[in-house]
Amino acid sequence: MNEVGFILSIMPGLLHGAITSVFVALAAISLGIILGITVCQMRRSQYWPLVRAAGLYISFLRGIPVLVILFLLFYMPSAVNIEVPSLLVAVLALGLNTSAFQAEIYRGGFNSIPAGQIEAAKALGLSRMRILTRIQLPQVLSLTGPELVNEFIILFKNSSLISVIGVTELMRRSEQLVSTTYKPVEVYLAAAIIYLALCLIISRLGERLKGKH
């Protein structure tokens, strides 16, 4: 079983790349949550310019492939002679992409809180900010939990694309190994196994969090 032995031997090297993938994904999703909630609030505001702007943001970033966002952020700065580090581009691109999807997810969450709860809060004199932080957000985050976990899994798989702009994560490490060992099937299968395992871990963690509530 040479193949199995080989796969096991390259695992450590691949796992190093996987750690980069995970970090980039975590950074991107944090950015995505902050931007997502902000854009969602813009979308739900009373000032129509904000609503329009948020709508365009969401439509554009959901309407183009992640790869194109990566290329836009990677190559455009060079047109004005600025160079942006690949890692930053990766986090930004993934973060922007997920923020647009998250904004829609949160919007569904906000809309599913019965209006009566907000009325009761208003009748008691709670301020808008207080209603958002104490009444709406806790419920929105728990209502949208499963969808957010799903989004994180998608984001993590999309992180494989950042290899094309030179970030040495799992995908790139695999390519490098293939070019030195000439064993594409074994190497890519090994990488696939790592992706599978990590996605499984993420969804298990998601279920655990849901169970706690």
């Binding site: 009566g116 709860q117 728990s142």
Partner: peptide
């Protein structure tokens, strides 16, 4: 609205807070 209290047909309690937390929320934040 400070001197007006309102009770609704469908109660409109906040489900993620205990009874005590529901009652004290406005006392603390308002």
């Amino acid at each position: 609205r400070r001197d007006l209290g309102m009770v609704f047909q469908h109660f409109n309690l906040w489900p993620h807070m205990t009874a005590m937390e529901n009652v004290t929320e406005a006392l603390i934040s308002v």
